[in-house]
Amino acid sequence: MKNYFLITSLIFALNTNVNSQVRAWIRVNQLGYLPNDKKAAILLSEENITIKSFSIYNALTDELEYKSDEIIPYGNFGNFKSTFRLNFSNLREEGSYKIKIDSIESPVIRIFKNAYDGSADFLLNYMRQQRCGYNPILNDSCHTSDGFIIYHPALDSTHIDATGGWHDASDYLQYVTTSANAVYLMLFAYEQNQNCFSDEYENNGIKKANGIPDILDEAKWGIDWLLKMNPKADEMYNQIADDRDHRGFRLPNEDTISYGKGLERPVYYCTGKPQGMFRYKNRSDGIASTAGKFASAFALGSEVFKKYFTEYAEKLKQKAIEAYDYGKRNPGVCQTAPCISPYFYEEENWVDDMQLAAASLYKLTGEKKFLDDAITFGRQERTT
């Protein structure tokens, strides 16, 4: 009986202790903050709480360094009944800190002038890891037999060289939809912040400087693949492989999934009509969403790469104009294709892709017709 009461008392004590703790978290920029930048943290609580101030302590000495009442309450958010924005922009001294509010404590906060150094280049490690063809992380090649054409009225089942590019995710499918977007964003990031990127890798992803910023090496890897997926002005491909790929975990250089032609994988020709090899189909009704992505990536690539590769840049300019014209002749969305599962990238908009393409071509060529088109497409945009 004594043991029963002892166990019961312990359970009650444990439950009381847990319930007495406020279930709340402080979210901070884990990368860090620059000394003179605006600085904020977010407090999220599963309970209704009120706070009037917060304190910041040195993470090493636990000495009080800063106290503030600059708090903005935001009320309910999702599962959280109380949310607050904590402003500590006036804390400019370099160092490592923690925010404390009663029993609530933040992760370590880093304030340093070099807090972001190397972060832009670090992200490129993921892109190199996703490379198809030669993969520098594995120091081996994969999917070198890609691929055989499907849905083309005259070239169905014939071979096309579509090696290169990036795997889309943890599977090994490849899409123009995502790859062209990645190319454009890398080029845009470089254009806007050229001093943020270093040169430590070659174009093939091996660590050795080659005189070209690494982000441009990576963008060019993507553009070279896009050129293969758009071999002629009126010939575009949107996808390699499909969800038949989803048959367990394996390294890309050990991928032996068969689509009926040895190790070749299907390369989907853009028809502007619904596609899907088996039960499930997408809702494609045009090609402009894909053509616009080709055009914008090629146009910005032409502008950025003219400093390094004159002939290549001129080729990209011509390809951008051709892809744009093809998109204008084939309005509508070109969605990725499902197969054995009903899932695919269900983009419903194409005017935004053509608007970006037109704006990019205007910036590249200075021709007013592209500016006029960009304005026209912008007025058709239903979502901004």
Rank of each mutant, 00 (worst) to 15 (best):
75 G>S: 12
75 G>C: 13
279 R>N: 02
60 L>Y: 10
206 I>H: 02
33 Y>N: 05
72 I>L: 15
281 K>S: 02
27 R>I: 14
256 T>A: 09
373 D>L: 13
106 S>F: 13
347 E>V: 12
36 N>M: 07
11 I>S: 03
77 F>C: 10
136 P>M: 05
163 T>C: 10
38 K>M: 03
297 A>G: 02
34 L>M: 04
301 G>Q: 01
138 L>V: 08
145 S>K: 06
265 R>S: 04
28 V>D: 00
288 A>M: 06
254 E>D: 13
29 N>Y: 04
374 A>K: 08
37 D>Y: 06
362 Y>A: 11
195 N>Q: 09
178 T>E: 07
272 G>Q: 04
83 T>V: 12
354 M>E: 10
126 Y>P: 01
239 Q>F: 09
338 P>N: 06
209 A>N: 09
23 R>M: 11
39 K>T: 05
309 F>E: 08
140 D>C: 12
355 Q>P: 05
380 Q>L: 15
184 Y>M: 00
91 L>P: 11
33 Y>E: 01
55 S>E: 15
118 G>D: 04
172 Y>Q: 06
230 N>W: 00
272 G>N: 02
275 Q>S: 09
103 S>Y: 07
67 K>Y: 01
376 T>Q: 10
224 D>K: 00
323 A>E: 03
125 N>E: 03
241 A>Y: 11
307 K>P: 04
75 G>W: 14
144 T>P: 01
110 R>D: 08
10 L>P: 02
106 S>V: 12
56 I>C: 05
34 L>Y: 15
206 I>R: 08
272 G>M: 04
263 L>E: 11
325 D>R: 05
48 N>I: 15
179 S>A: 12
56 I>D: 09
79 N>V: 14
57 Y>D: 02
178 T>L: 04
202 E>M: 13
176 V>W: 00
342 P>K: 02
306 K>C: 07
135 N>K: 05
188 F>P: 01
45 S>K: 02
40 A>M: 04
66 Y>Q: 08
91 L>W: 08
381 E>H: 11
205 G>W: 04
61 T>W: 07
295 A>I: 07
261 K>D: 01
215 I>Q: 05
378 G>F: 14
370 F>H: 14
271 T>H: 03
203 N>C: 04
102 D>N: 13
194 Q>N: 08
346 E>V: 15
341 S>G: 01
48 N>R: 09
34 L>E: 09
66 Y>H: 02
58 N>G: 07
381 E>S: 11
55 S>D: 09
215 I>D: 05
50 T>L: 13
152 H>A: 12
91 L>Y: 06
59 A>L: 10
129 Q>I: 00
153 P>K: 11
26 I>F: 08
53 S>G: 08
76 N>M: 11
321 I>M: 14
211 G>T: 15
107 P>Q: 15
56 I>A: 07
275 Q>R: 01
89 S>V: 11
328 K>F: 07
194 Q>S: 11
64 L>T: 09
11 I>E: 03
380 Q>D: 13
62 D>N: 15
22 V>T: 14
4 Y>A: 13
